[in-house]
Simulated assay, not measured.
Amino acid sequence: MAPLVRIGTRRSKLALTQSGMMQRAIGRALGVGDADLAEAVPLVEIVTTGDRVQDRRLMEIGGKALFTKEIEEALGDGRVDVAVHSMKDVPAEQPEGLCIAAVPAREDARDAFVSEAFASFPDLPAGARLGTASLRRQAQALALRPDLTIEMLRGNVDTRLRKLAEGDFDAILLAVSGLNRLGFDGVIRQRLSLDDFLPAPGQGALALQTRVDDRDAAWVAALDDPMTALAVAAERGAMTALEGSCRTAIGAHAVIAAGRLRLTTEMLAPDGSARWRRVGEISVADAADAMEQAGALGLCLGGEVRTAAGDRRVDP
């Protein structure tokens, strides 16, 4: 059987798990049986620069686009037909000819506190070593606990958990969604509040990226969750306004209930000494242009946050 849809994916355990979920969903949408899935909807593994360089923060080597660049090149030149990304890794601007065609239903967007010795974030003693490579998590942690020692932690989830078990850190912060998808939810000691640790834009959501010409394919529509897509549009609007990257500590999270979308977004000084936040909401019930309105709300609130921050230094 000739491949019907080739999926580009990173080689990490989490990326392959997420892409495998989408492989099965695409197979169901195409009517492909399990026995033919690997041949009809193959996973094409691609090593990205972000995977190869593990000893430095992403902001030092080019930002989070380093997790998507090589896969996007394969998509653009026809070696794969769809890319599966963690939405929080997808830059605000799409390369020419490519688009985010579908956003599947979201997992838990919260951050997870993981520790061998301590039951919760507040239980950490003064000077405790907290591992993270995220500037956002660093800033949010220091805003609450300036006494902590933040240490750089990169690598896949297995690597980070191993370093914690070996005693390199007193605790680490990870995304709940990744741990859930990997079946590692048992290591979570505390699911951190969305207020204290406002997630990265798109955290917990996946992005299905295709060529623009393929965005209306029937299998694409079958995988899209309109409510998740709306929430993510608002969050990414804020990210665009705040020039969100690995060099800025920003969070954004939207919830939809009773036909209304409520967005919270913030920017922090990297040392946690200052925090600027705005909250707004719009009606999205039966709105034909709901996606545009959601994005516009994000742009508006993000702009207000940036104005409030003024000339204060927000880059490390």
Score class of each variant (00 low, 15 high):
A143L: 05
A143D: 03
E151G: 00
R154G: 10
V157C: 00
I150K: 01
P125A: 09
A141V: 06
P125M: 08
G131N: 10
L161V: 10
P146M: 06
A126G: 11
L135E: 10
K163T: 01
A128H: 08
R136S: 12
G167N: 05
R162C: 01
P125T: 11
G167I: 04
D158C: 00
N156F: 03
L142H: 04
A143F: 09
S134K: 09
P146G: 08
R137C: 13
A133E: 13
L144D: 01
S134G: 14
D147V: 10
P146Y: 07
A165L: 07
A141G: 08
I150M: 13
L148D: 03
G155T: 02
T149A: 14
N156H: 05
L164G: 03
N156M: 02
E166M: 14
G131K: 05
L161N: 06
A128F: 11
L144Y: 01
Q138E: 15
E166N: 15
N156Q: 11
P125K: 13
G127M: 13
R145K: 12
T132P: 13
A165H: 13
V157L: 07
Q138W: 06
L153V: 01
M152N: 00
R162H: 13
A126C: 12
R145I: 03
Q140M: 15
T132I: 10
P125Y: 11
L148F: 09
D147G: 11
D147L: 08
L130K: 04
R154Q: 10
L148W: 04
R145W: 04
R136E: 10
A133D: 14
R162T: 15
A133C: 15
E166H: 12
A128S: 14
T159P: 00
E166F: 08
P146A: 07
A128R: 08
G167M: 03
N156E: 15
R160F: 06
L161Q: 06
A141Y: 03
E166C: 04
L164F: 06
L135K: 08
G131V: 11
R162I: 05
T149D: 14
M152E: 02
E166R: 15
